[in-house]
Amino acid sequence: MIRGVRGATSVRANQAEEIVERSFHLVKEIVNVNHIKPEHVVSVYFTATEDLNDAFPAKSLRRLEGWTHVPVMCMREINVPNSLPRCIRVMITVQTDKNQKEIQHIYHHEAKQLRPDLQSGEE
């Protein structure tokens, strides 16, 4: 079965180091709690709000051992009025035996407000 695993984080400022670091912590937790192996990943998509352009969040994925050949892309999040600023979202499409309710979606920092029904992850 192919499933999507979602997550999001936010940053305090449009700074490359923070964008990559927070994206890395987000993806690392998603991978760990869902026991995702790179060879089971179909693709990874990152989006960032228009106020973030100092770095590609996808750069964080290359810090994970074995993820060199995983297809990854970054895209711009649509600019919805009153939406969360400085937000990075990720969707990992993965082959898994888990059912939909077993998938753990992760939300960090201010992005926790996007899905209060799925509270998990670090501050």
Rank of each mutant, 00 (worst) to 15 (best):
D51H: 03
V41H: 04
V42M: 02
S120F: 11
I106S: 12
S120Q: 10
L84T: 00
L61R: 08
D117W: 11
V80Q: 08
A55C: 14
K112W: 01
Q104G: 00
E17M: 11
V5G: 01
R3V: 03
Q119G: 05
Y107L: 01
K98D: 15
A111I: 00
S10D: 03
K28D: 13
N53K: 14
L84I: 00
S43F: 06
M1H: 12
A13L: 05
E17S: 15
P71Y: 04
R115F: 13
S23P: 03
P116E: 14
A13F: 13
R115H: 11
I2L: 08
R6Y: 15
I92E: 05
H109C: 03
S83R: 00
C74R: 10
E122Q: 13
V42E: 11
H40M: 07
Q100C: 10
N53G: 15
E21V: 05
A8F: 01
Q100P: 01
Q113R: 12
M75C: 10
Y107M: 01
V90K: 02
R62S: 08
S10A: 11
E77C: 00
E39Q: 10
V94N: 08
I2C: 05
S10M: 03
A48K: 05
N34P: 09
H35P: 00
G66I: 06
F56R: 08
K98P: 05
R22M: 14
V11T: 10
V42H: 13
V31D: 06
I30T: 03
I92V: 13
D51L: 02
V90A: 09
E17G: 14
R86D: 00
K101I: 14
I78V: 15
E102N: 09
T9A: 04
D51W: 02
N79W: 03
T9H: 02
H109W: 06
V31G: 03
C74V: 14
E29D: 15
F46P: 05
K101S: 10
A48H: 08
N99R: 11
N34W: 05
L64P: 09
M73H: 09
H35T: 07
N82D: 11
L114W: 00
V80E: 03
D54R: 14
